[in-house]
Structures are given as C-alpha cells and as structure tokens.
C-alpha cells in the first residue's frame, strides 16, 4: 500500500529555486507566535532545504543557512546526534537508516564548533546495535569524523515526567538525551504504515526504553515525546527516501533519490516540509499535527522563512 505518489525528484516548490540562489517564501512573515522554538536571529532563515549530489555539502549548506551550527553548539558542549538506525540488516542504499555522510558532516560541524564530545546513538528495533551501527555505515563514517558510537546502556533509562504531555504522562527515557547540552535529531524520511511517515518526531522513539508503548495512540504520544525531548535542531536526511515497505524496506525500487537535507530548529516545520517530498503535508501526519497543536512548532510553511538551496 504505497503511502503516496511521489513527485519527480523533489517537492514542486523546489522547481522554482534557482541554482545557488536563496529564495525566501514569505519575506515579511516571522515564525508563528504559536511556536515554542527559540527566537530566530536576524539574517537567518527559519528552515533550510539544500539540494545537491554531495550529502556532506548539502548538510553543511542547510546548517549554514539557518545560522550555522554555532547557533546551537557552544564550546565545551556535550552533543548527542540521534540518527535512525532501525535494523541491522540494511545497507544505506536501502534508505532504511540515516545517510552516514549526513551524520558524519554533523559530527564534524559540532566538533568544529567546539563540542566537548559528540556521541551518536540509536536503539535498533531488530538486530544487535553493534551490527546495526556497522551495517548502516554510520559507525565508520561517524567515528572517522571524530564521533563516539554509544551502545545504549539499559542501566541509563530513567522514568521522566512529561509535563506537557496529553496522553503520555511519564516515560522511561535514555537519561543522556535529557542531560546533554545539544540533541541533534537526524531522521531519514521514510514510509511507515501506521505513522504514514517516519520523520523527526517519530525518530525519537529510539530513545525510550519501550517504544512499543508509543504504538497505541501514536499521533498524540509521539507529540508528547517531542515535548519532552525538544531536540535542539532537526536535520532530516532526504538524500534517499523510502516511499513504501517502510520502515526497513529492502527493495531499491521503493527508494527515491531526493538529494535533499532539511534543517530547522523547529521539528514540526521540518517534518511538515519533509512530508511535501512524499506529496503529503504536515497535516496528513497525525503526530506532526498533534505536535503543532501542543505548540511545539508550526505546520504553516507559508508563514515561515524558508531557504531552498541548490548546490
């Protein structure tokens, strides 16, 4: 059951973006007041989508457009990069796991900004973490960039209240996610038969002890989880996207090359933008809609300052 017919290559709005030109969709409008995200510094866009053949380059460009990594990472910070490494049996070309070059680029940027350490972690839902880290290509790329692959330790989950949650009142969560100075959320955009799409919000299931709990009333509970974690910045890997048979895929025929990386401090806006790559809107994804309703970001892409870059 395909999630959606995919527009050729990328979102229609991108077709108008000239090479290396920055286009501001609504120059007059600043972020919606409903957003709880950090205030936007002058001269930087709210959300950037960079397109090009080199995953590292477009990751860097997207981050630069939203104000550079220095906007989020300060010298001495403890940084966690949270990619999607869902299984131990898929190589990166199947678009089941986050692109290793995108992860590596982020690790490098954080370290260059003076981060004390940059840890990369996820809890796969099938297979051993070590095997998943290796097969995804993320271990090699992230470690070469200076990152530390952390196998998530069962002793480090703690029950935490979710003060803003509507359904999820408390959850056992990996403590480091809450104590780190910076959390960089790096999902890969892909199909999911219940959530419709796995994007920034759903990527956070990997940091709680029992992700199975989230499968009931998923829309609200993912939104509640977002309200607890509040990642510092969300960088969506849409270099390759999986349009059917997610989350683990396995058919190259289900993979589309969108060559895009989306970055924003606003997880809801980033998810809403990524949904357009699948011919959907943020409103079509229950957890994105509910997260917006909780005031965690904006769904209205016409109200924010978006830069689309072609490299």
């Amino acid at each position: 059951m395909p999630a959606a017919a995919l527009p050729t290559q990328a979102a229609p709005s991108m077709a108008t973006a000239g090479p290396a030109s920055a286009r501001t969709s609504e120059p007059g409008l600043l972020p919606s007041p409903a957003s709880s995200a950090a205030p936007l510094p002058a001269g930087q866009c709210y959300l950037a989508a960079a397109r090009g053949a080199d995953p590292r380059a477009i990751t860097g460009a997207a981050l630069a457009a939203i104000g550079g990594i220095g906007r989020f990472v300060r010298a001495g910070d403890d940084v966690i990069v949270k990619p999607n490494i869902c299984v131990d049996y898929r190589e990166p070309e199947y678009a089941a796991t986050t692109n290793p070059q995108v992860v590596a680029a982020l690790v490098e940027l954080c370290l260059a900004a003076g981060a004390r350490r940059v840890r990369v972690m996820d809890m796969p839902f099938a297979g051993a973490p070590q095997a998943a880290y290796a097969r995804s290509g993320i271990a090699e790329a992230a470690e070469a960039a200076g990152g530390i692959m952390e196998i998530m330790n069962p002793a480090k989950y703690r029950e935490a209240d979710v003060p803003d949650g509507r359904d999820l009142r408390s959850v056992s969560i990996y403590q480091d996610l809450l104590s780190a100075d910076v959390v960089v959320n790096v999902p890969i955009a892909k199909h999911h038969s219940l959530a419709r799409l796995t994007l920034g919000g759903k990527n956070l299931l990997g940091v709680i002890e029992r992700p199975g709990l989230i499968h009931a009333n998923m829309g609200q509970r993912v939104a509640d989880l977002v309200s607890l974690v509040r990642p510092t910045v969300t960088v969506i890997d849409a270099v390759r996207i999986l349009i059917d048979n997610g989350p683990s895929g396995g058919n190259l025929g289900d993979v589309r090359e969108a060559y895009t990386v989306i970055a924003s401090h606003d997880i809801v806006a980033a998810d809403a933008y990524a949904a357009t790559l699948f011919g959907l809107t943020g409103d079509d994804i229950p957890y994105v809609r509910k997260a917006a309703a909780l005031g965690l970001g904006t769904l209205d892409l016409s109200s924010i300052d978006i830069q689309e870059l072609d490299l």
């Binding site: 299984v87 049996y89 839902f125 099938a126 999911h192 038969s193 219940l194 199975g212 499968h215 009931a216 048979n245 989350p247 683990s248 895929g249 396995g250 058919n251 289900d254």
Partner: peptide
C-alpha cells in the same frame, strides 16, 4: 478493532 501494525512494521522481507 484496535489499530496495530507492529508485525507488519517488523517484517524484514522486502515485499512484506
């Protein structure tokens, strides 16, 4: 009549 797709989600066969 309760929504659940966990088995389908976990199925590793490419065509599910």
């Amino acid at each position: 009549g309760v929504a659940c797709i966990v088995c389908e989600e976990a199925c590793p066969v490419p065509d599910k």
